[in-house]
Write a protein that binds this DNA or RNA. Sequence first.
DNA 1: GAAGTGATGTGACTCGGTAACATCACCACC
DNA 2: GGTGGTGATGTTACCGAGTCACATCACTTC
Lengths: 192, 192
Amino acid sequence: MGRWEPDTRRRLAQAALELFIEQGYEATTVNQIAERAGGLTKTTFFRHFPDKREVLFAAGEQAHGRIVADAIAAAPDGATPLQAVAAALDALAAVFTEERREFSARLRAVILGNSELLERAALKRAALAEAMADALRKRDVPDLAASLSADLGTRAFYTAYDQWADTDNHEALVDLTRRTLDELRATLTTLG
Amino acid sequence: MGRWEPDTRRRLAQAALELFIEQGYEATTVNQIAERAGGLTKTTFFRHFPDKREVLFAAGEQAHGRIVADAIAAAPDGATPLQAVAAALDALAAVFTEERREFSARLRAVILGNSELLERAALKRAALAEAMADALRKRDVPDLAASLSADLGTRAFYTAYDQWADTDNHEALVDLTRRTLDELRATLTTLG
DNA sequence: GAAGTGATGTGACTCGGTAACATCACCACC
DNA sequence: GGTGGTGATGTTACCGAGTCACATCACTTC
């Protein structure tokens, strides 16, 4: 497997984030990203990422569906749907260590500033929920209960994630997620 | 206000849907849409729709956020969050009359067949949930309870909508939505 | 009938994204 | 130590979405 600069993908992703922060997402062309990533070209960029948006999400984010699915599949037989979801969120939140916090915050700021990226983010979020719901159905959780638990878990995760990436509070995402899920569960009884 | 063919926008939307069904979304160019809509041009298309995707959603779909927000604002003071959401879904479902069913089914088929359109649909769905959550917060419903109720309502609506557009069952969407929301509420107690 | 207004057309441009083909670095094998 | 293969990259050309400045045309109003 011939290769002379091994982490082209990572260099592209890093160059992209830098340029998006400096100039904004729209003002940055794919050619500029490829150029900064070591004199590469547009074609190479598109060999590593399906489109310009994905370069911001592919940094690890492709595996999230697998992580939650595996965790739910691995939950003990007697676990309730929400207990399985809690296990999934633990596994997912564990990915976001303290070192990634700064990076995540910058990423989030870029995404929030562009509607194309918000759209992609909405899709990713829906895909995460769908992955959880699928995994729950494989445990014979009925359709509606599976979808609902997955929605709840997704809501808990992103609520916690936003706090984690947004504040100076350095509480671990795992703890934030668990607390948020508990609060959501408590809130369920107050909806009427 | 000079104008000689009054409903350009509707003609564009109709031409677009026709062509998407005949040739697929990707295989259809904006020029073709404009041409079929009465010898128009690309420029005119983009004066009516911000992008190619939106032509499928702007057919009424822009007002959905307003509909649910108004209904939630108009709910009686003593209404619980879920009662306000139920009122919102009633108002929204009322838009989809039996005559629109065939149209909605075709629209849905086109959207399900293209990832760009699925992405846009995910955004629209998130926007609907956000509109409900906002309206609930204005009624002093706490943040988490508002988001959760909105997620629940959104799940209920789209579950019902999928059945409504997909089956030969001609039950009104309003009834389907109400029943689905009730089932979801019952499911809440089973999640553990 | 002349001026004004709003919708449309024209032509040129940028950029995202795709594809075919050439090239280059490296590796293995002889 | 050449030689061929392989995988990543470069080149070139192309298409279509989306934007913009400017011209035009229908229709209204005075």
